[in-house]
């Protein structure tokens, strides 16, 4: 079942790094906080890691698709992958976007919006790896769009969780007022993120599984992993709701241990989010039909 552990690991790492990089850049746009928490070195390091992962992923994919071992992959096999319409182009665009992100952050660090857009392009290119890249025609375009929005929304959530964790960490220089204001600012963004995830997730599910649901539903691991993903998603929603309706107002009202509770709940929410990324990394390599 888990025939390609390296492929799953690389997909997971790419979702995490590119999603987080986009989410951190997005956070700087919608949240009032000192930018020193996420310096440009952090973004440059993440983009560089994204490049290494993408290069490794390209070789791994070439090996997997050609039925070769990693050591036997040559330039010809890599060139074949890059020449594939959609998938190959997306690889090239992603690598170019990551290089451009590094250049922008190194030369014009104030150009946060340009870096955000470039990081978004790199993240969205991941949609081509997996089920959305395999759907044909106009339906394929819809599937890609849904997956791209799903990635963007997930990235924003991931970035916000990491930022809130950093801001509520022990020894953080961020005062309670800034944290409370940041949490409050995220309320609207968070609602949009959850709505987008629910809608685009449902669309992608229907496009992969088919409607009406096939008779062979739940006869392959794909279904069970997806069900587990949904359960974890609902748990994240529960934690986010506790944060929004209970902990954040408590912080704003000056409750003594509010920061500590927020830190704990964000930590748990982040752990669940990372678990979902691992599930998705695996899900994308499985098919819903048992054959």
């Amino acid at each position: 079942m888990l025939t390609d552990p390296l492929a799953v690991l690389l997909r997971f790492a790419l979702y995490a790094v590119l999603g987080l990089m986009f989410g951190l850049l997005a956070f700087r746009k919608y949240s009032p906080m000192p930018t020193r928490l996420v310096g440009r070195q952090v973004i440059i390091a993440m983009a560089a890691l994204g490049l290494v992962l993408s290069g490794t992923g390209l070789v791994e994919l070439a090996a997997r698709m050609h039925g070769l071992s990693l050591a036997d992959v040559g330039m010809a096999e890599v060139a074949t992958i890059l020449s594939l319409p959609g998938l190959g182009t997306a690889f090239g665009v992603r690598i170019a976007a990551l290089l451009a992100t590094i250049a922008v952050m190194a030369i014009w660090p104030a150009r946060g919006r340009t870096a955000l857009m470039l990081a978004g392009v790199a993240l969205v290119c991941l949609a081509f790896q997996g089920h959305a890249g395999a759907t044909e025609g106009r339906a394929g375009l819809g599937h890609l769009l849904a997956t791209a929005l799903h990635l963007v929304a997930a990235g924003i959530w991931l970035g916000a969780l990491v930022m809130f964790l950093a801001m509520s960490a022990r020894g953080s220089q961020i005062d309670r007022g800034t944290l409370a204001a940041s949490l409050k600012r995220f309320h609207g963004v968070g609602t949009m993120v959850v709505a987008t995830l629910a809608l685009t997730g449902s669309v992608a599910f229907l496009m992969i599984a088919g409607w009406p649901l096939p008779a062979a539903a739940f006869q392959s691991p794909w279904w069970w992993l997806l069900a587990l993903k949904l359960v974890v998603f609902v748990a994240m929603l529960g934690l986010a709701a506790v944060n929004r309706f209970h902990l954040a107002p408590g912080l704003a009202a000056g409750q003594v241990h509010a920061v500590q509770w927020i830190r704990r709940s964000i930590m748990l929410e982040l752990a669940l989010g990372v678990f979902i990324l691992a599930l998705v990394a695996w899900l994308g390599l499985l098919a819903p039909d048992p054959g």
Binding site: H131, A134, T135, H143, S202, P288
Partner: peptide, 8 residues
């Protein structure tokens, strides 16, 4: 999404 043929 429902009208599309199952993919993938």
């Amino acid at each position: 999404a429902m009208a599309a043929a199952p993919a993938a």
